[in-house]
Nucleic acid binder design. Structure first.
Length: 242
DNA sequence: TCATTAACTGAGG
DNA sequence: CCTCAGTTAATGA
């Protein structure tokens, strides 16, 4: 398996933990089936019982849930290096959907292989544990965001979180990065209507805080944006020594 | 199809 | 009375 498949994953895990060479070797030697999928492709659906986990190698994906009335809540945004459905390893039935935002390259890893790696390399199991708990911390922050913050803070928070996470794996250049979501999709993530998302983006732009054009975010005034967002990156736990 | 903007509305502080 | 956010509608890219 070429290293590009696990490159982003290893960068991220290296950031949140101290791995040794054997841990890295074990992760690199997992049997991974790589597939290309189109944008807005359902990778796994609510109620399905996958026998493998999905590693995002290239592209973006979201986890979401849709109510009977057809209203969708986007629960999390996933970037290369993420294993969004790692919970399926120990919870058989999916309770939400996993959908690509962009054309994506995904790696599928059989549950059996991950379980075996966890048995032979307990340290890797601990690192996956830590990663999963950080995932939970991000959900807590997401709840606070959607439940208690006003629209401009919500938007600013989402943008800053994504920037921090993307920086670990690479693609943030001169304060710019890809946010491949329509304003309607951002609304589903933030609990706002698309019209209000548009108003909010305009407000942030007029305030000189950030720009959002053709799926690209440019952060113009990060200190002000952080203050507005009430952004404290502790919850990302990217530095294991803290 | 998606983004933009205005006008209006109601809830709630 | 003011702020925030949803709805509707018109317009443009």
């Amino acid at each position: 398996m070429t290293d590009i498949v696990t490159a982003a994953l290893l960068k991220k895990l290296g950031k949140i933990s101290d791995m040794n060479e054997d841990d890295i070797k074990a992760i690199k030697s997992m049997p991974i089936v790589v597939k290309q999928v189109p944008d807005h492709h359902y990778v796994v659906r609510d109620r399905e019982r996958p026998s493998q986990c999905c590693l995002v190698i290239e592209g973006y994906a979201v986890r979401s849930k849709t109510t009977r009335q057809g209203r969708r809540q986007i629960l999390s945004i996933h970037i290369p290096g993420d294993i969004p459905d790692v919970q399926s390893l120990h919870i058989e039935v999916m309770d939400h959907d996993l959908i690509t935002l962009t054309p994506a390259i995904l790696g599928f890893i059989p549950h059996i292989a991950i379980r075996e790696m966890h048995r032979t390399r307990p340290r890797v199991a601990e690192i996956f544990w830590r990663e999963t708990l950080i995932d939970a911390a991000m959900f807590r922050e997401w709840i606070v965001n959607v439940g208690q913050r006003q629209a401009p803070s919500r938007m600013a928070h989402l943008v800053l979180e994504l920037k921090r996470r993307l920086e670990v794996i690479g693609p943030v250049v001169s304060n710019m990065f890809q946010l491949p979501m329509t304003q309607d999709e951002l609304g589903d993530a933030l609990g706002l209507t698309a019209v209000h998302v548009n108003r909010t983006i305009k407000q942030l732009r007029d305030g000189g805080l950030m720009e959002f054009q053709r799926q690209t975010v440019k952060i113009l005034n990060e200190p002000k944006l952080k203050e507005l967002a009430d952004f404290d990156e502790l919850y990302l736990h990217q530095d294991p020594s803290l």
